[in-house]
Each structure stands twice: as structure tokens, then as C-alpha cells.
Measured scan of single mutants.
Amino acid sequence: MLDDRARMEAAKKEKVEQILAEFQLQEEDLKKVMRRMQKEMDRGLRLETHEEASVKMLPTYVRSTPEGSEVGDFLSLDLGGTNFRVMLVKVGEGEEGQWSVKTKHQMYSIPEDAMTGTAEMLFDYISECISDFLDKHQMKHKKLPLGFTFSFPVRHEDIDKGILLNWTKGFKASGAEGNNVVGLLRDAIKRRGDFEMDVVAMVNDTVATMISCYYEDHQCEVGMIVGTGCNACYMEEMQNVELVEGDEGRMCVNTEWGAFGDSGELDEFLLEYDRLVDESSANPGQQLYEKLIGGKYMGELVRLVLLRLVDENLLFHGEASEQLRTRGAFETRFVSQVESDTGDRKQIYNILSTLGLRPSTTDCDIVRRACESVSTRAAHMCSAGLAGVINRMRESRSEDVMRITVGVDGSVYKLHPSFKERFHASVRRLTPSCEITFIESEEGSGRGAALVSAVACKKACMLGQ
């Protein structure tokens, strides 16, 4: 009897593995994704193909990295998701002549009506938060230079001027797309009239992360975010950046690689679950690469896999709870928690219980395998993109072996128990001629924006502006 049951459990697990095998990517698959990513990057950089390229390769006008001589107080704003952060950054000489960066910050959550109302409502709310922060720190009387981390696709015309191309991540505030974001912020500050600010720089969160990590390690020339969304930036040779005049030196390019796949480059790798996630998203047909990796989508992918296993009578005796059938019910943090389970399955059992399920031991094991399959594919897909960037940098610099540091931020990278190990191992397999160091950014977005502002202020002083 026991043997029969054991055989049935083994057969069930084997069927589960057959279904989950769809998520496995072979090294040849990853090399294919990497080569296609490089081709799209090239198209994004070139003037004649930029418009139709899915990977936009947006110039950021960040050319210099901090040298350690900029000092002063800077205000930093960070808008990239449902939370908005205001930070005071003091850049100065530390002990023994070292450079020191001290920060104080406060988080504000953005109400739904500000995210989806008008641009005026959104930026009025942001300036209200700045006003509140300055009151708390008794700094209303000071006109501070301000660095703005704005983590949406922007076409820069200068370091302090950028046109919002399109909202992502659930934002829909009308009247912002096609307009200068810094102008919208300046107008809102003017409307309030109770404080003055000098907006000197606007950067993407990947750029802010790279600059913040450069402060720790001067070989950091790539910034990457794996959180709600997924994106990367890197220092490109100016001669390859056709959208900006000049051939000397390097400029940081914001790849906006989340949109890779929007022209069909990933079609052969998309599964039924991916198509369902895409169809029910706020932007169907867009940001397809990001939807395979980002935390906004990972939990939902797992939920759809679990429903398939229920329908195949391989999980929960073929019956799903009402909660499990509800879109968004299986949160991405559950994926991390399930994979963090120590082996007694308590954590998995508790999560499934909150979803109205009474799982068996085998159910718990199957749910864990589903989570591992989805998150491992995410790590491997992400590795193909980064390997594409790094191999490109090595080739354009004609280096036999390139040493490089990548600064990384984002909740999936930082909080998932195995993502970074799987990701690092896969990147290294795909970049055999590179020695890569990964560092995690601390308060990256805010500190990085302030350091970019410090560079901009120093330049302005040198130019006598």
C-alpha cells in the first residue's frame, strides 16, 4: 500500500517536472537572447534605426563620474514606483581627507489618484512632500541643488532636461508624456511658492545606482535594477552614441532593455503563462523582457503555473481556492519566502493557508518547484541581457580580458534567497573573457542622484555659470 502511494507521488512529481521543464533555458538559448539583445542595442544607438529599435539606448548626458572633490548639501528625489523618497545628502571631506556622503531620508507613498490623475496632481503632491521634508529638517530658507531620480523612459536633451516617452509600472498621470519632466517639477514648486529649489540633474535609477557604486569602486561602469521592473545602464564610447554629437570619451546610456521583445525577438521563448500575464497587464505587448524578470510579474506567473497544475490534477487534489483564482493573489514576496523555507515546509504551508488552501507535504514541495522554475528562468533571462552589455563593452574597448564592476539594486536581487547566485553564475558562463565584480548599492537611487548633481554643480562652477 505504502509502495503504491510512494509510486503515485513519484509519478505525480515526474509529471510536474515535465510541465515545469518549459521554463528551462539551455545555454544556447541564452546565447541567442544575448546576441539578439546586442543587435537591438546597436539599432538603438544608431541614428537611422533608433526610432524602430525596441531597446532605445537613451543617452543620459552623464559623462563624468564623481571624483571626490564636490562638497555641499544636496536634496535628492526618487520616483520610480508607488513609494517616493526625499533625501538630504551631505557631501563633504571625511576623516583623513576621505570623501564622505551622509544621508537623511523619508519615504512617502503615492496615492492612487496622483498616479493615475493628471501630471499637475502628481507633481503638486511631490512638491508637497518636499515642503514637508524641508519643514522637518528646518531647511526651507536654503535654496538647495536638487537631483531627481526618475525611473521611467526619458529622452534627455541635457542633464536637466528630459522628455517622458511613456509611463510604465502602473503610472498613468495624463499630460506628462511628451513633456519635460524637470519643467513639470519646477512648475509645481513655483505653484507652491513656499520654498526654492535648483533642479540641476535628472537621472534614471540605473544611472543613480551606477554612480553610487562608483563611489565604492571606481571600476563600476554598469548599473542595473532588478526590482519591480528590470533595466540597466553602462558607459558607452561616445563615438557609438549617434544621437549625441561628439566622439570623445564616454557617456552613460540608459538601455531601457525592459522593452526588448516588443518587436518579436522573444516570441519563441514566451510561454502561455507569459501571454496571460501580458494580456492582463496595463501595457499589453510592451516591456516583454521586463515581464519575464521583474517583481511586478513574478508572483503572478507562479500563480498561473499553480492553476495549470491544479487543472492537471497534480496539486491540491485538483481544487483551487477562490483566493488562488484571484489575479495578483500570489505576491512576489511569497516566491522569495517559499524558496527561503528551511525544509520543514512550515513557511510554505503558512503562505498557502493564507490563500485558503490546506496543502499536503507533496503540495508544498511542488509549489516550491514552481517558484524555483519561474525565478530561475528570470535570473537566466536577466543574465543574457547583462552578458550582452558586458561583452559589447569588452569588444568596443578591444580588451582581451576586461575587469568590470556592476552596481545592482532592486528588491528581487536583494531579497530573493537564490536569485543573485543563479544570476551571477549564468552571467559568468556567458562572459568567459571578463572578470566581473557585483556590488549592491546602498540607498543607491538617492545618493547617486545627489552625486550626479554634485558633478553638475562642479561643472557649472568651472564653466562660470
Rank of each mutant, 00 (worst) to 15 (best):
R5A: 15
R5S: 13
R7N: 15
M8N: 11
K12T: 11
K13R: 13
K13I: 14
V16H: 09
Q18C: 15
I19N: 06
E28P: 03
E28D: 08
L30N: 02
K31M: 15
K31C: 05
K32C: 15
V33Q: 02
R36F: 10
M37E: 01
Q38M: 11
Q38P: 01
M41C: 06
D42P: 01
G44W: 00
G44S: 03
L47H: 04
E48V: 08
T49I: 04
H50L: 04
E51T: 13
S54T: 12
V55N: 01
M57Q: 04
L58E: 11
P59C: 00
P59N: 00
T60I: 07
V62Q: 01
V62S: 02
R63T: 10
T65A: 07
G68W: 07
S69I: 12
F74A: 11
L75F: 03
L75A: 04
L75S: 03
L77T: 07
L77H: 06
L79P: 00
L79M: 13
N83L: 10
F84E: 09
F84M: 13
R85D: 15
R85Y: 15
V86P: 04
L88K: 03
V91I: 12
G92R: 08
G97H: 14
Q98M: 10
W99R: 09
S100M: 11
T103R: 02
S109H: 09
I110F: 08
D113S: 13
M115D: 08
G117R: 03
D124N: 11
Y125T: 02
S131C: 13
D132S: 05
H137F: 06
K140C: 07
L144R: 05
L144P: 03
L144Q: 02
P145C: 08
T149S: 14
T149N: 15
F150T: 11
V154W: 11
R155Q: 10
I159K: 15
K161E: 11
G162K: 13
G162V: 08
G162D: 12
I163Y: 14
I163A: 12
L165R: 11
K169T: 11
G170A: 14
F171P: 11
S174R: 14
S174M: 13
A176G: 09
A176F: 06
A176S: 11
N179F: 14
N179S: 12
V181N: 08
L184K: 03
L184F: 06
R186T: 05
R186A: 11
D187I: 00
A188N: 02
K190W: 11
G193A: 12
G193H: 05
E196H: 03
M197I: 08
M197Y: 11
V200E: 06
A201S: 13
M202R: 06
M202T: 04
V203C: 04
V203P: 09
T206K: 01
A208F: 01
M210W: 01
S212C: 15
C213I: 14
Y214A: 15
Y215K: 02
Q219G: 08
E221A: 04
V222E: 02
I225A: 06
G227S: 08
T228S: 12
T228P: 13
C230V: 14
N231W: 02
N231F: 02
Y234E: 07
E236W: 04
E237S: 08
M238F: 07
E242A: 04
E242S: 08
E248Y: 08
M251R: 01
M251D: 01
C252D: 05
T255H: 01
T255R: 00
G258D: 09
A259L: 11
F260V: 02
D262R: 14
G264H: 13
G264A: 10
E265A: 07
E265M: 02
E265T: 09
E265K: 04
D267P: 01
D267Q: 09
F269D: 02
L270Y: 08
R275E: 06
V277Y: 10
D278A: 02
E279D: 15
S280W: 05
S280P: 03
S281F: 03
A282K: 10
A282S: 11
P284N: 05
G285N: 05
Q286I: 14
Y289L: 09
L292D: 00
I293Y: 04
I293N: 07
G294C: 06
G294P: 04
Y297K: 12
M298T: 05
L301T: 07
V302L: 09
V305S: 04
V305Y: 01
V305A: 07
L307S: 08
R308E: 07
L309Q: 02
N313K: 04
N313E: 14
N313Q: 15
L314R: 05
L315R: 00
L315D: 02
A320M: 06
S321P: 12
S321A: 15
E322F: 05
R327F: 13
G328D: 06
A329T: 15
T332N: 11
R333A: 05
F334S: 02
F334C: 09
Q337A: 14
V338T: 03
E339W: 02
S340Q: 09
D341N: 03
K346V: 05
K346I: 03
Q347A: 11
L352S: 05
L352R: 01
R358G: 10
P359M: 15
S360M: 09
S360N: 15
S360T: 08
T362I: 03
D363E: 06
C364R: 01
C364S: 09
C364E: 11
V367I: 05
R368Y: 13
R368W: 12
A370V: 09
C371W: 01
C371M: 02
E372I: 10
S373M: 12
S375L: 12
T376C: 11
T376G: 13
R377D: 00
R377A: 00
A379P: 00
H380E: 13
H380T: 13
A384G: 09
A384E: 01
G385N: 01
A387F: 00
R394E: 06
E395A: 12
E395S: 10
E399S: 11
D400H: 04
M402L: 12
R403K: 09
V406E: 00
S411C: 14
Y413P: 02
L415V: 06
S418D: 12
S418V: 11
F419D: 00
F423K: 02
A425V: 06
R429Y: 10
P432A: 12
C434H: 01
I436V: 08
T437Q: 12
E440R: 06
S441L: 10
G444W: 12
G444T: 03
G446P: 14
R447G: 12
G448I: 10
A450R: 06
S453T: 12
S453C: 13
A454G: 10
A456L: 06
C457L: 14
K458D: 01
K459L: 05
K459Y: 11
C461H: 03
M462Q: 10
Q465V: 05
